[in-house]
Each structure stands twice: as C-alpha cells, then as structure tokens.
Nucleic acid binder design. Structure first.
Lengths: 270, 270
DNA sequence: GAGTGGTCTAGACCACTGT
DNA sequence: CAGTGGTCTAGACCACTCC
C-alpha cells in the first residue's frame, strides 16, 4: 500500500489508488470502492476521502458519476485534425465540381464522419468588430462584421466536437448575398470556397493554439468536466494581396482533440 | 448580488464573485475576502465557501496562496512559439557560421530571452525504445535509443518554460560521439545542426498537439497549479530519405504557452 | 501574534441510480 | 428500496506569511 508516506493523508490515499490504476489492478471502467468504504479502509472521514478523489479527477485518472460510483477513466479516442492537409485540400477542392466538394470535404477527413452524421447548427449576425478582432483585421474597432457561430454535434454520441465563431468583413461578405444566409451552411467546400465566390484567393493561414480552463458555458456545450481544458485555435486567413480576410476561433474539448501540423523545410542548395 | 439563483449555494457564491471579477469590481491581483468573511457574508460554512473557491480556481479566475490569501488572477503573458518559422530558420542556420548560430538560435526568437538568461539542464541515457516510440520510428520495440531529457528555466522568474524528452536512434547518434555528451548542450543551432553532422537533412517536421491534465511530477517541475492543463507537442522529424530520425515530446504549461503555425497554400494555376 | 489558507472530523440530509 | 455521490454544518488544529 504505502506508496507515498509524506503529505496529507488524502493525498497518500490518492497516490495509492493512482499506483493501483497504473499497475492495472483497477482496470479502465472498473469502479473504485465507494466513498464510505474508502473512508473505512484508509481510516479517514468521508470529507477527506472526497479530497483524495478530487485529486484523482484532476489527474484525469477517474470520473465520478453521481448515484452510480467513481470509475477508472476510459481514454476516449482523440479526434485528429490534420490542419495542414485540411487547408491545402480545401483550397484544392475549390476548383473542383460540387459533387466532389460535397462528398470529400475536410470535415470527414478529420473526423471519420460523413456530413450526414453531423448536426450542424449555424447562427449569423452583423455586429461591430470587437477590439481584438479589429486588431487582427487591421480595421477600425467598430467596422461592421459578419459573425457566424457554429456547433458540430455527431449524432450518435451526444458530445459536440467543437464550437466556433468566424468573422468576415461585411464589406466582403455582401458581395455574395448567399454568404449572409445561415441556412446554406454547411457550405460544401468550406470557407475557402465561399471566399473564392467573391474573388478571394488565400496565400496562407496562420493558426495560434492555446489551452485554457473552460468557461461554465463551454463545460455545458462541449460536455466536458472540471479539470479538462479547452483548446482554442485562432485561424487567420490571409489573401494573396496580404489582406486578412477571415478570423475564426474554434473551441475544442482538450481531452478529445489532437491537432497536427506539417512543416515543409526547403531543401538545401547543393 | 444574486447573479445565479439555482444550484448549490457555494456555486451561487462563486457565480457572484465571478460576476464581480468580470465587472472589474475585483481587479486583477486584488485579494478576495477571506474564507471566514465570505462564510459570514454568504451565510455558509467555511467548507462550503472553500467549495465555491475551488470552482473559481477551476475557471482560472483566482489563485490561492497559503497563508496569504486568495487573489484575482493576473494573466501571465504567454510565450509564443512560432513553430513554422522556428523550424525553417533552424534549418537555414545549419549552413551558417557558428557565431551566428550561437547568437540567433530559435530559443531567443520564441522567448525573447538570450541563452545566458536560461538555465538549461540535460540528461542523456541509452534505453530500449518503448512501444509507442518504436512505432513512430518504425523499428522493433527494443531497439537501442539515445534518450535526452531537457529542462528550460528562465533565470529571473523561476518557472520553467518547458520540459522535454527527445529520442534518436542510437545507431544514428553514435556516428558523431559529440552527440552522446550532455555537457555539450545546448548545442548551438539545435537538433537540425546535430543531425547535419551525421549527414542527415530534414525534409519536414510533423507536430501533434494535445492538452491533458498534468501529472503530479509535471505540476512540480513546471510550477503549475491544479486546473491548468499541459500542452504536449510531439515533434517528428523526417529526413529527405523519408526516415523518421528524431521524435521529441515537449511539455509546456498550458496557461503560459501559445503555439503558432503558418500553412502556406500553393497558388492556383491561371 | 494575528490572520491566512490546508487538513480533518463526525455527523446530517438530499438527489440520483439501480433493482 | 438500498447504495451511490453531492451538499452542508460547526467545530478543531496545523502550516504558512507578514508585521
């Protein structure tokens, strides 16, 4: 037992359980002893036992389910997002016929799901640019923007894959009235195809990735529990004339996401 | 006061404090009322008050300091890691004279620190490849590997920027005995220059990024608190002959890191 | 030494899950 | 219904920080 013999008793209990989980004595999906039982077994009050369990939750080793028990966590598979290939493929598809765009969009490539398995909700509105968004576009802070909000929910499993917000200059979006219609989402071929309808070709995309604790809203809407961070990706699309034409913030559950980038390195000259 | 009127009382207290923080009534760095005071003010026991404070910590809004108090969190600036430019610059520098490599390495570019401000610890050992590493290299699971472990600590602020583990095939590393010597780290010019000394040129680097809760070790060594995730970057370097030549896992504090990638998009043909 | 948060107890009642 | 975790109390003592 005595894995750790320093520090508070509840931490010793947690370290002990941790060792058992890592050794496989408690298999993924198996229930931990109940709180009263742990209290007796380790000679602690239930309050202290709960402190220990909170540590295990914070380490991502167990999940607690009210009325059922506490269980060793099943690692849920992560969704891989191959960003580099995704963006290049999206650009390539713009020039292809619609049936091909519709059946081989970037979404399926990332998730293994086809569009029919995904509930896609979109809300559009026209608002003045908040300060940080205006800064990225390099426009005045009250410039009119088209803001689009999305939520992707696979139909089987009720957990959303991601939520997001995308910003376009209204002056750009207005040039094709279809871009203002949420009912046309998801647009086959994605944002790059939308931009191409108003004569915009992208030169490059810059992704900035951070992790942060979820807001209470995000915990609900992404179905994540305390202790799990969200990954936030800010995607900035830059056109061939060096203008910023789209800024999108994508929020993904940190425990179910893997982001992949490929950096090509120019060959040395002989 | 009554921001939220449903759910447990400690959650209502937390929501209330949250509103005050977001409204600026409690400025960053300001102390919250002490636990006994909150208990009296909200008509709760200290235990319940502590439950509420735990929520605020989980939301990343406050930090607790034993013996001092609980404070509204100061957003610490994130360290930006421009991966794409970093890797390309590192490749470019390999062909330049040493004084230039020494003074304009990728580390300073990312952190704004020069090498002299950073304590760099390295440990090397030779071990058989664990299963997942062997899988990435495409070699048998017990192939001999050179494992290198690093810790970067800026001298001023005591918080490590990152820790990491890097794997090379021992068969490769042995071809230049200097590569087996930890006392030569940090190697001016970085890994790509090391590889160049044994005739290896990189074609591309693939980065996979995940977020996960820190292990207890990582909490200590990275100086992060409960509720903050770590970002883990697995960097796979692929040589011009398509061999995997290095795999590195870099662990960074999730609350102080921003990862940036640029994806260049080939131009459409006219 | 006064004040802070950290640990701990021994209860109580409630809400939810299963049978 | 019995068993689980969730909330809550009213205390106690300890470890740490600051004056």
């Amino acid at each position: 037992m005595g894995t750790e013999t320093t520090g508070p008793k509840y931490a010793q209990m947690a370290a002990d359980l941790r060792a058992m989980i890592e050794a496989g004595d408690l298999a993924p999906g198996a229930p931990l002893p109940s709180e009263p039982e742990l209290a007796e077994r380790y000679g602690l009050s239930r309050t202290s036992v709960r402190n220990g369990i909170r540590l295990l939750v914070g380490w991502g080793l167990v999940v607690v389910e009210r009325g059922r028990g506490t269980f060793v966590r099943q690692a849920r598979p992560r969704v891989r997002r191959h960003a580099t290939e995704r963006y290049r493929r999206e650009k390539d598809l713009v020039r292809r016929p619609e049936f091909e765009r519709r059946t081989s969009g970037p979404l399926e490539q990332d998730t293994g799901l086809s569009l029919s398995d995904v509930t896609f909700r979109a809300e559009f509105d026209i608002v003045p640019a908040p300060k940080d968004i205006a800064g990225v576009f390099g426009v005045a802070p009250d410039t009119q923007m088209l803001r689009r909000r999305h939520l992707h929910v696979p139909k089987g499993d009720g957990f959303p894959l991601r939520g997001g917000e995308s910003w376009l200059l209204l002056a750009d979006a207005e040039r094709n009235p279809d871009l203002l219609r949420p009912d046309l989402e998801p647009w086959p071929g994605g944002t790059q195809h939308q931009l191409s309808t108003i004569g915009i070709e992208l030169d490059r995309i810059t992704d900035s990735i951070i992790a942060r604790p979820p807001t209470p809203d995000e915990m609900r809407s992404l179905g994540i529990t305390a202790g799990v961070s969200v990954l936030v990706l800010r995607k900035v699309s830059i056109a061939t004339d060096e203008r910023v034409v789209e800024v999108a913030d994508v929020v993904m559950p940190g425990d179910r996401t893997e982001l992949i980038y490929t950096v090509d390195l120019p060959r040395w000259e002989k």
